[in-house]
Write a protein that binds this DNA or RNA. Structure first.
Lengths: 217, 217
DNA sequence: TGTACATCAGTGAACGCGCGTTCACTGATGTAC
DNA sequence: TGTACATCAGTGAACGCGCGTTCACTGATGTAC
């Protein structure tokens, strides 16, 4: 540590000192919007947004597909952490359903771009990309399923096909979330309310069905 | 009707005698597949598949977006007709739910390409395109809602928030359908079964919730 | 501390390609007389 | 029935453009001595 080097900014020419993977991810997110999907972005656009030469892209990702997958992973991890926190912060007065759905909707606003990737692009794109999205969905299902079982035991209510229940809720919430991204902020509150009711329908449904099943036995 | 003209095939050069709108739609559907989405098709690809010069495209559609919307309309109309028939063909032994879901899943196989457009591309693409998809979804919701009300009256069961119920079911089924397109034929049967249960959860849920509401009053 | 050298994340320039769109054209078809 | 003419759905050729990818390069950084 003898000499103090110049800070890692631009050198003489248009050369960037260093580019981090994270920087590229963030720049890409910045390009996304309600009408700009990941699959419509070009490598050169991403490079431009990051402020690097097009060919520099290859120093970080083999192709655009790899970038897309990295974004999916990021989105999934972020969202699961948030929802997880919401679930365990559940108090007596605020139901699990309400808390989780609200946390989800809140994320929809804060991390719009990130969730866009997860919610809206699961059906287009390469097989690898789709796999990544599917994997995230399954994570959610499993966590939700565990939660449902725990709650059922706690409240001593029945639970008909917990796996299917979890899947139904996950798919519904994600589908709803995808279309909620177009809504104005004012519409968000009522939308959240509606989504809660829908989820509750499913939960009440499973409980009732399990009870009827018991009766039949 | 004096002279018999040559049939409407190729003339001397590479000139097509006539190209119908329908022909273009069908050729475009032919290009779609599990890993080829509408938004990734180029005008020139469509022209090639139709067997016409690229610029001939403009004689039929102002741009690719218009073509996409035409396909959405076609897909929606087709599917609604099929499901409608299924609903009214309901017998005593086969429930409405089961019949409708089965009709839906069957269509998924037969008109795969067409449904691909409707199910998977609703979240990407131009505003006009998205509107078209949303419109179709609402059609479904309304029809389903009317059916639910009719059934509730018939069976004298309650119905909590029929609009929300219809929406929940529609969104769930469409989301499920979208991911079902990747499944192998063998997996279809069990998937249909699962989907039926999910839908039934929602229906049982609303019925129970309406009953509890009555009790409270 | 200084020097020589290897590494490798950055770059500019260039490539060939498929794209959407335009233009002026052509020739089949229908219509008026 | 024949002729003259308008219409318009088809076309080939050409345009400029942004794309993904390649190449040989450069210069900052770390390491060995």
């Amino acid at each position: 540590m003898s000499t103090i080097k110049t800070p890692p900014v631009q050198t003489t020419s248009g050369r960037r000192a260093s580019i981090s993977r994270e920087e590229i991810l963030q720049a890409t997110l910045g390009l996304l919007g309600p009408h700009r999907s990941l699959s419509s972005l070009s490598l050169r656009e991403v490079a431009r947004a990051t402020g690097m030469a097009p060919n520099s892209f290859y120093r970080h990702f083999p192709d655009m597909d790899a970038l897309a997958i990295a974004l999916i992973d990021l989105a999934g991890t972020t969202l699961r952490r948030i929802i997880g926190e919401a679930r365990h912060r559940v108090s007596a007065e605020r139901s699990v359903v309400r808390s989780s759905v609200e946390a989800f909707m809140e994320q929809l606003n804060t991390n719009q771009k990130l969730l866009h990737v997860l919610l809206r692009e699961g059906s287009v794109g390469s097989p690898a990309f789709r796999d990544a999205v599917e994997r995230e969905l399954r994570f959610f299902e499993e966590e939700l399923c565990a939660d449902l079982k725990r709650l059922a035991k706690l409240n001593n209510t029945g639970l008909y096909e917990p796996e299917l229940t979890a899947r139904a809720i996950t798919r519904l919430v994600f589908a709803a979330g995808a279309s909620a991204m177009d809504l104005s902020p004012e519409q968000h509150a009522s939308f959240t309310q509606e989504l809660c009711i829908m989820v509750r329908m499913i939960i009440v449904g499973t409980q009732t069905m399990s009870r009827n099943q018991e009766n039949r036995l």
